[in-house]
């Protein structure tokens, strides 16, 4: 059984915001595959700090 799928072709490059999400997924996947949890936690820490400073 198929679920509903919206399929669209757009004549322009992928938006930078989506590319950034996908690049980050790829980077995290590569780090996890290497077992480099330390770098991932450092990345998360930086992200949390910057999210907190944006809230101020």
């Amino acid at each position: 059984m198929k679920h509903p799928v919206i399929h669209i072709k757009i004549d322009k490059p992928m938006p930078a915001s989506i590319r950034q999400v996908l690049d980050e997924k790829k980077e995290r996947g590569a780090l996890y595959a290497k077992g480099d949890i330390k770098t991932i936690r450092e990345m998360d820490k930086k992200k949390n700090v910057s999210a907190l400073s944006n809230k101020r």
Binding site: M1, V5, I6, I8, K9, I10, K12, P13, M14, L22
Partner: peptide, 22 residues
């Protein structure tokens, strides 16, 4: 197919850009 029936709505999108697919 396993979990959708009556419990979840599933909706997908495929957007084909010039340089990548999301």
């Amino acid at each position: 197919n396993i979990y959708g029936g009556g419990v979840y709505h599933f909706q997908s999108s495929i957007i084909e850009y010039q340089d990548n697919i999301s």
